[in-house]
């Protein structure tokens, strides 16, 4: 991990800007704050710069360090495909791929990921060019309200990679053998993605189909 220059980290930048400034580039106006009459605590309200790649596109952001990766995506980059269901790591709706691994983007700060390669549901496919997993979800009706769906799909893509990489799960019978692609394995591994509409049975069908066609 490349460490940015110290002076940048220590920098306490106060951006004076009118509240009505429109969003410019990837620095949302919503992060600008008035320097007038700021109480002592405001002195800590610095912004920090961070650069990473999202869906193949380099992004340079200047953020309140409190900004989660999830909010940086949704509010800073208008990538609202990644959903906020609970903001506390209890639902999985915010699942994205960070350097190829699935994580809850609500429980990490954007500034913690300089140089990272992030993939969101928008980076997997588009309405006119669906990723095979997205197409399988449509075919098997693996969703209803659609709110957990991007997280389910990102998770599903990662789950197949995890099984392929030999990472065991709670239901893997033999820890020292390669995990099998079974319904039980998929259900256990997908359990960090809650679907209150209850599309689970269909989601497992969708993932199974994609896994089968990959083999």
């Amino acid at each position: 991990m490349a460490s940015p220059p110290q002076q940048e980290l220590r920098r306490r930048s106060m951006i004076a800007a009118a509240a009505t400034t429109a969003a410019i580039g990837t620095v949302p106006a919503a992060l600008a704050q008035s320097s007038a009459e700021t109480p002592p605590e405001a002195a800590k309200a610095t912004t920090l710069k961070v650069s990473f790649t999202v869906n193949g596109k380099p992004r340079d952001l200047e953020l309140d360090p409190r900004t989660t990766l999830l909010d940086a995506l949704r509010e800073g980059m208008n990538l609202t495909g990644t959903k906020k269901g609970c903001d506390h790591g209890q639902c999985g709706a915010c699942t994205v791929l960070l350097d190829g691994r699935r994580i809850n983007s609500c429980l990490t700060l954007a500034v913690m990921h300089p140089g990272a390669d992030i993939t969101t549901v928008e980076g997997l496919g588009t309405p006119d060019r669906l990723h095979p997993m997205q197409a399988a979800f449509v075919k098997h009706d693996g969703y209803q309200c659609g709110y957990c769906t991007p997280g389910q799909i990102c998770s599903a893509v990662a789950v197949l990679a995890e099984i392929e990489a030999g990472i065991p799960s709670h239901v893997t019978t033999d820890l020292n053998a390669k995990p099998q692609l079974t319904g039980a394995e998929l259900r256990e591994r997908m359990s960090g993605n809650i679907c209150r509409c209850g599309a689970y049975s269909n989601i497992v069908d969708a993932i199974t189909e994609v896994a089968g066609s990959k083999a």
Partner: peptide, 23 residues
């Protein structure tokens, strides 16, 4: 760990979710 400390692998895999265990 899987071979020699199976109880540790098992305990880890029983915890949280795949996403949380990745971080």
């Amino acid at each position: 760990v899987r071979r020699d400390y199976g109880v540790l692998s098992r305990a880890l895999l029983a915890g949280a979710s795949g996403q949380l265990r990745n971080r």
